[in-house]
Amino acid sequence: MGGLGLAYSASICPETGFALFEPVHGSAPDIVGKGVAHPYATAMCLAMPLDHIGHADAAALLRSCLRQTQHTDAATPDLGGMGTTHAFIPK
């Protein structure tokens, strides 16, 4: 699955449909201020609610962009790259 920067989750109430989408990770005090935290899981937490509310095309586009970013110079050290958290965000 990868490191904690890649794990994301959804908690959806079957009765109401209310949902909480969040990355699954800890505080990572060892990398604070280094700019190497991988924001993939946080960004994926935007794609899941898009699916949940019926915007599958927008969710698919976001996922595609995220996959492409992982295979560029923006890849963070946990994926074998030299990118920073800031570089991961497309301009």
Rank of each mutant, 00 (worst) to 15 (best):
residue 41 A to S: 13
residue 46 L to V: 14
residue 57 D to T: 13
residue 71 H to S: 06
residue 65 C to Y: 05
residue 18 F to V: 15
residue 9 S to V: 01
residue 66 L to F: 00
residue 68 Q to M: 12
residue 80 G to H: 09
residue 72 T to K: 08
residue 88 F to G: 01
residue 82 M to R: 14
residue 10 A to K: 05
residue 54 G to L: 08
residue 71 H to M: 09
residue 73 D to N: 11
residue 56 A to D: 12
residue 74 A to R: 00
residue 30 D to W: 12
residue 25 H to T: 06
residue 86 H to E: 11
residue 65 C to E: 15
residue 81 G to M: 10
residue 65 C to W: 03
residue 90 P to D: 06
residue 54 G to E: 11
residue 23 P to F: 04
residue 57 D to S: 02
residue 60 A to H: 11
residue 33 G to I: 03
residue 49 P to M: 03
residue 88 F to D: 07
residue 65 C to N: 15
residue 37 A to C: 05
residue 28 A to R: 00
residue 20 L to H: 12
residue 18 F to W: 13
residue 74 A to P: 11
residue 48 M to C: 06
residue 56 A to Q: 13
residue 44 M to A: 04
residue 41 A to D: 01
residue 13 C to P: 00
residue 59 A to C: 09
residue 52 H to E: 10
residue 44 M to C: 14
residue 26 G to R: 08
residue 39 P to I: 09
residue 77 P to Y: 00
residue 89 I to R: 13
residue 41 A to L: 01
residue 7 A to H: 15
residue 6 L to G: 04
residue 51 D to I: 01
residue 56 A to E: 10
residue 47 A to D: 00
residue 75 A to Y: 07
residue 30 D to Y: 02
residue 67 R to L: 03
residue 21 F to Y: 15
residue 76 T to R: 01
residue 78 D to P: 03
residue 39 P to W: 12
residue 59 A to Q: 07
residue 8 Y to H: 15
residue 48 M to V: 15
residue 47 A to K: 02
residue 42 T to R: 01
residue 33 G to A: 00
residue 1 M to Q: 10
residue 42 T to W: 00
residue 75 A to M: 11
residue 20 L to T: 14
residue 66 L to N: 05
residue 36 V to I: 15
residue 83 G to L: 00
residue 19 A to S: 14
residue 42 T to F: 05
residue 90 P to T: 07
residue 52 H to C: 05
residue 60 A to F: 05
residue 22 E to Y: 07
residue 63 R to T: 07
residue 17 G to T: 13
residue 62 L to Q: 06
residue 39 P to M: 09
residue 82 M to L: 12
